[in-house]
Amino acid sequence: MELLIMNIVKRLRKSSLLSLRKKHYYRRNQSTKAYLSTIMFASLVGTYLDLLLVGAGRYSFPSRPFSEIFTINILFTLFILPVFSFLIILVLKRLHPISRYLLLFICSLFVYIAEQIAEQFGLFIHSTYWKHEFSLFGYLLFFIVIWKFYSWQVSHK
């Protein structure tokens, strides 16, 4: 009887069930790290781009939280942009590569239109030198960089 129990225990120790459970946790943990680092990266890039463009006088945010401290809209760069980036990544990872870039262009087109609407509501003031096409291609490039950063995070476990 003791020999039978020892044999079962040895087989269980050699079983791949335990290693599968560990690998699954490891993969999920790595995926979470990739999401978090990408979201933080998107927030930092968005913040620095806004600081650069606001400092250059290309646009300004007349209505923003903590306007006496920040020249940029931190609500956008710290909350809206990271959430939007997270949602885009969730969808992109399920798409075929060609469809990914089509979706990224559609998202950029959405931002292009939303920016003009936000300007009508007084959330933005653009300089006379600003062309909204800058936003269309700028956000397309931004989303591609965010996607590539996420892909790099996932591939370098």
Rank of each mutant, 00 (worst) to 15 (best):
V145M: 05
L87P: 03
F110G: 03
Y25L: 15
Q30W: 12
L104Q: 11
R28N: 13
V83C: 06
I89L: 14
F41E: 12
W152H: 09
K22C: 10
F70N: 07
L20A: 10
A42V: 10
F137L: 07
T128N: 06
Y26H: 15
G57P: 12
A118K: 00
F143E: 04
G57Y: 06
F137A: 03
L90H: 05
F105L: 15
S135Q: 08
T128V: 06
R27Q: 14
R27I: 15
F41C: 12
F66P: 04
K93I: 12
W130P: 01
L104S: 02
C107I: 09
I117T: 05
A118H: 03
T38E: 12
Y150M: 04
S31Q: 15
E115D: 15
T38D: 12
K148I: 07
T77M: 06
F66A: 15
A42L: 12
S155H: 09
V91Q: 11
S37T: 14
S127K: 02
L44C: 15
F61C: 03
F66Q: 06
S151V: 01
F143R: 04
I72N: 01
K93D: 10
R94P: 03
F70E: 08
R94V: 11
F70R: 10
P65T: 06
T32M: 14
G57N: 10
L53S: 09
F110V: 02
Q116S: 03
T47P: 09
F124R: 00
L141I: 06
H24K: 13
I146Y: 03
